[in-house]
């Protein structure tokens, strides 16, 4: 069966790009917060482990 697809308009593509950038920024910020937060909370003991 022939399928019909939606062709995004210029405005929809632009909005999706902005949303993608916002999600990327939020995710990077969250990763940094968790990383630094873990370092601060656990302190030097974080690196104190048997090799």
């Amino acid at each position: 069966m022939e399928q019909e697809f939606i062709k995004p308009t210029e405005a929809q593509l632009k909005a999706r790009r902005k949303r993608s950038i916002a999600i990327a920024i939020a995710l990077v910020a969250f990763v940094i917060v968790v990383y630094i937060g873990s370092l601060v909370k656990l302190g030097p003991s974080l690196f104190d482990r048997a090799m």
Binding site: I6, Q12, K18
Partner: peptide
């Protein structure tokens, strides 16, 4: 998201901004 079939009831591509 672009491969979603147009027959889906109520489906539309979002124009929401951040």
């Amino acid at each position: 998201v672009e491969q979603k079939h147009m027959d889906d009831a109520g489906y539309r591509l979002s124009e929401a901004q951040p």
